[in-house]
Design a protein around this nucleic acid. Sequence first.
DNA 1: ACCAGAAATCAACTGCATGTCTATTATCTG
DNA 2: CAGATAATAGACATGCAGTTGATTTCTGGT
Lengths: 189, 189
Amino acid sequence: MDNNKPDRRVRKTKAILRKTLTKLLMEKDLKDISVLELTDAADINRGTFYLHYKDIYDLFEQIEQETLEDFLNIIVRYKQLDSPVWTAVMLDLFKYISANADIFIAVLNTKESNFLTDVIEISRPKTKQEWHKLFSTGKEEYYEYYYDFFTFGCIALVRSWFMKGMPESCEQMAELIEKLMLSCISGLK
Amino acid sequence: MDNNKPDRRVRKTKAILRKTLTKLLMEKDLKDISVLELTDAADINRGTFYLHYKDIYDLFEQIEQETLEDFLNIIVRYKQLDSPVWTAVMLDLFKYISANADIFIAVLNTKESNFLTDVIEISRPKTKQEWHKLFSTGKEEYYEYYYDFFTFGCIALVRSWFMKGMPESCEQMAELIEKLMLSCISGLK
DNA sequence: ACCAGAAATCAACTGCATGTCTATTATCTG
DNA sequence: CAGATAATAGACATGCAGTTGATTTCTGGT
C-alpha cells in the first residue's frame, strides 16, 4: 500500500516546531533565534530538528511555502470562473488571513520573509492580463510600474490593518482595496 | 581645541568597511556575511572592526542611518517653502538615488533593512497634514490606509525602476509618482 | 499482538565565527 | 618631535552549528 502520508511522529514534530517558531517570532526576529533556543522551547531534541530541516531559515521558508499554497488555492478557485469577482477573492483572502492571524503576524513581521514578494510575482502575469483586458488603450510600458505600485500598496494596507488589530471587517477591507485598484488603474488610461 | 572630527585613520577604516559591505551585499544577504569575510575583503584587521561596531548589523544600520539623513535633508529643504512642490521633491530624491546607486542596491535588496519603513514613518505626519489640506472632506479614519498604500506603492515603484536599470529618467519617474498620488488621493474624496 | 522499519533521543565530536584581550607597531595631531 | 590614539597580530574562551553512531521508543501493516 502506497501510504504517502508521513509518519504520525513526523507530523507531530513538524507541527510543534512550526508552532513554536511562529510563537518565538512574535518576540524576536528570525536571525536572533538559534536552533537550540527553538528546540528547547519546543522540547524537541536538537538532532531531530536536523532530521527535517537544513537550518532555521529552511523551517521558516516551509511555513511560508505552506501559507503561500493556501493563498494560491483561494485565488485559483476564482480564476477558473469566467468572470472572477475581485471583491470576492479579496474577501476570501482577508478571511483566510484573519483566521490564521498567528502565522501572518510572524510572516509580516519577519524581515527575512519572502512571502509577500512571492505572492506578487506569482500573480503578476495573470493580473497584467486582466488589466490589459480592461484597458487595452493603456501605456503598456508602464504596466509593470502600476502593478508594483498597486500590489505593494495592497500589502501595506493589509499589514497596517493587521497591526491595528483588524478593526475593520473583511468586507470593508475588500471594498477599500477594490476602490484603490480602480482609482489606481484609471491612471493607465 | 575641541576637535570633534574623528581621526583620519578612523574615517578611512569606516569608509572602507562601509564600501566593502555594500559591495558584498550585491552578492549575498546580510545574514550570510560574517565579520571575518567582511574584514578579509576590506583588508582590515578583524579586531579593528569591533573597535567601531558591535556587529555586522550595527554597521549596516549606520549606513542606513546616514542615507536616511541625506534623504531627510532633501525633504526638509522643501518643507521650509510655503508651497512645497511635490514633483520637485520627488525629482531631487530620484536624483539622489541614482547618484548613490550602489548604496541603494544594497539597501533595497537587503531584507534586514529598515530604511524604507523608517522613511515612511518619518514622513507620515507631514504628509497626512498636506493631504488633509487638500481634501478636508475626506474620511479621516481611512487616512492611515491610504498613506500606507501610497507610500509602499512608491517604494515598490522605485525598487522596480532600480532593478530594471533605471531606464526612465528621474523626471519621468517623478511625474509618474505625482500622477499616481493624485489618482490615489482622489479616492479620499 | 507482534515485528520490522523508521523516528526520536542522547552523547559526543569537529569546525567555525564570535567577541575579548594584550602586547606591539604604525599613524595622526598639535 | 612627542604624546596620544588607532591598527595589527596573535591567542584565548565561548557557544552554536552540523554531523554521527549507538540506543530507545513508537508506528503502521500483517
